[in-house]
Design a protein around this nucleic acid. Structure first.
Lengths: 197, 197
DNA sequence: CACTATACGGAACGCGCGTTCCGTTTGTCA
DNA sequence: TGACAAACGGAACGCGCGTTCCGTATAGTG
């Protein structure tokens, strides 16, 4: 194909196919093992050479972004929905549960949330900020409704949920355990104070 | 020194001094940055060559062990003490708080507890098992006293505390936040069930 | 002081992994 | 079908880090 100047260049058919395959392979690999999977593995799963991966995604981080962005989008959409729920407390808690469910199924989410030491968040930063803001809204509403304690910040809440689920998956606990753990966090959020007995 | 056969060989004075220095440097480095610090860094901090480090500790894991073992010892001793406290609920909660305090100050503890993906636990395994057993006792006593919910396992409880603190330190939250987070977990443990409101 | 077992320092090696390079293949259009 | 830009594959490179090796220094002894 001769590309006329000013014309938008079209992607070759095999290129499109490979791009798709790479995304699928990366999705699967990142879900299963987190961001630490070597690019070689992704390439192999996609039935493609490493060079090809790097032509489509110049950096491992770019590939990671492509995968995680859609995940974050989904969670953001859900957060927006929950923000208008009638029962703010219930909204917050069921959102956290859904968040935990997705995070324990897709290991890369942990890495995105900064649970691993890796600094992949660089370009996901704004999405993460929005995420935090959205959860902040859910939290504030629940607090305003008197459903949860006032002395907790978004960062702490996120840390509780993400950290616990991360630990759970590392310890080999199942989704059910994960749900119970988040349930404990939610219950703890409800209590205003407490005295030992 | 001529070493007579059967006689226990004595360590040379400079060797002893270096061993001590290496332990101190490793202690500091591991506390600050976790197990991921390169051996070269430890060697440099100790004012010693890498070769020297490896003569004293044939493997990075050996060095890690030497540091973490003492930490675990301390926590185990505390767990044994708390096991005879009059108020089992209070005992469990204050133990968890102390645990969290130490873990957030000494990053290597996270790695030891398996919070990082690294499999350093190999030889710490038995200590960790004992740890789990000890916390299990505290939990059982608190449950028997009716102070905490019945539907939680030791693994889940440990995951909640360790995971949360790990996330907190990665997110740059301070010790106070960490303490509040563990407080939420403890409060959540007290609640038998809960209905949304 | 001389002598040697012991210990030391740090260059070098192996390996995993991200990334690059380049010779070869292939899709597309005339 | 011929020609060429586009895309491919995978060997090779660089780097970080754990580990090893060996020539040099030194503590301890007689």
């Amino acid at each position: 194909m001769k590309t006329e100047p000013g014309e938008i260049p079209h992607m070759r058919s095999d290129a499109m196919r490979n791009r798709e395959r790479i995304l699928e392979a990366a999705e699967a690999a990142f879900s299963a093992d987190g961001v630490s999977v070597p690019i070689d593995t992704v390439a192999e799963r996609a039935g493609v050479g490493v060079g090809t991966v790097y032509r489509h995604f110049p950096t491992k981080e770019d590939l990671f972004e492509a995968i995680v962005m859609t995940r974050l989008e989904g969670l953001l959409a859900l957060a927006r929905d929950e923000a208008t729920a009638e029962l703010p407390g219930k909204a917050l808690f069921s959102y956290l549960q859904e968040f935990a469910r997705q995070a324990s199924a897709k290991h890369d989410l942990f890495d995105a949330m900064g649970a691993a030491g890796i600094d992949f968040k660089t370009r996901c930063a704004e999405k993460l900020e929005e995420m935090k803001a959205r959860i902040g809204i859910l939290l504030s509403r629940a607090q305003a409704a008197g459903s949860v304690r006032q002395d907790t910040s978004v960062d702490e809440l996120i840390g509780l949920v993400v950290g616990s689920c991360h630990a759970a998956s590392l310890a080999g606990l199942d989704d059910d355990a994960c749900r119970r753990m988040v349930g404990i966090v939610c219950d703890g959020m409800r209590v205003p104070a407490a005295t030992y007995r």
